[in-house]
């Protein structure tokens, strides 16, 4: 039933940066019964790739991302990042959460400078790094503002700048634009693509939004619902730079269709599974 993903020809010359090996993560039901949220998932991400994990809600895609971030430890299997097994969170993997999760007591600049400060950089050095990143996300005028005075979209831009401040090789994004309105989301998607083109960063991006996944990713890993497995590895060979206009093209629509069919089958299966139980 579950088709093993076909091997993808290398389009990026980078080495394997994230190696997820047979990872199973379970959660405990009230009765103590263990239910796998992610079941024997394996995939690889090469340096500089932009990968989207796409799946219906509750398919364990965020759990999988948390395992790469080091917030969850796998029951079985392991996550290897840059050749080392992941044992906990670290500054080599910046994370952008669905909620901005900025430190409310710190200014925008101090939030972005936090990582470099923790890495032992001087106040001046950290400040310079923060200024540069704040400029890249277009918030120079709000550098001294406190987070609660900013809009949701601005806060999320600060969160991206903060996650990049340690110059992590990997950026992990957990539905970062899910809480934003449609217009803001579209602007954020384009600016993320520009940012990614400027930086040498590998991105693993979790979303349930098909259009978002196809617009952003080099590869879309489509996941099945409960227990979460990767059912297809869809290569998105639409040329870059991509903009909102890209979504109108026939190649985009064909890939969108492919993902949509997979997701709908999964949602249907999950729905029937629930009614049988």
């Amino acid at each position: 039933m579950i088709r093993k993903p076909a091997p993808i020809p290398l389009r990026q010359t980078g080495e394997v940066e994230i190696d997820v090996r047979d990872v199973t993560i379970a959660f405990e039901r009230d009765g103590g019964e263990l239910v796998p949220a992610v079941d024997r998932v394996s995939f690889q991400v090469r340096r500089g790739e932009f990968i989207c994990l796409l799946g219906p809600s509750g398919c364990g895609k965020s759990t999988l991302l948390n395992a790469v971030a080091g917030f969850e430890s796998p029951y079985e299997g392991e996550v290897v990042v840059a050749g080392k097994s992941v044992t906990g969170p670290g500054p080599d993997r910046g994370v952008v959460f669905q909620q901005p999760r900025l430190f409310p007591w710190k200014s925008v600049k101090a939030n972005v400078a936090h990582g470099p400060r923790m890495a032992g950089k001087s106040r001046a050095e950290a400040g310079a790094i923060a200024d540069e990143l704040i400029e890249m996300v277009g918030l120079t005028r709000s550098a001294n503002a406190l987070p609660h005075t900013l809009s949701g979209g601005m806060q999320q831009r600060v969160a991206i700048a903060r996650a990049l401040a340690n110059r992590p090789g990997i950026l992990l994004m957990d539905e970062p634009f899910g809480a934003l309105d449609a217009q803001t989301r579209s602007v954020m998607q384009e600016s993320l693509l520009r940012l990614w083109a400027q930086l040498d960063t590998t991105i693993l991006f979790v979303t349930h939004d098909i259009d978002e996944a196809v617009l952003l990713a080099d590869r879309v890993l489509v996941m099945s619902a409960g227990p979460g497995r990767i059912i297809r590895d869809v290569a998105v060979d639409i040329p870059r730079p991509r903009t909102i206009e890209t979504t109108l093209g026939a190649d985009f629509q064909a890939l969108r269709r492919e993902c949509l069919d997979l997701i709908r089958q999964q949602s249907q299966k999950a729905f029937e599974g629930n009614t049988d139980a």
Binding site: A69, G70, F71, G88, P89, G90, P91, R93, G94, V95, F97, Q99, R101, L102, F103, W105, H114, G115, M118, A119, R162, A163, A165, N166
Partner: peptide, 24 residues
């Protein structure tokens, strides 16, 4: 706990979590 995770992924050492996040 979200702020604690944010601090952790930014490389805040365990011993500094109290001063940087928990207390505030």
């Amino acid at each position: 706990q979200g702020l604690v995770r944010a601090a952790q992924m930014l490389g805040t050492p365990r011993r500094r979590l109290v001063g940087e996040v928990v207390l505030l």
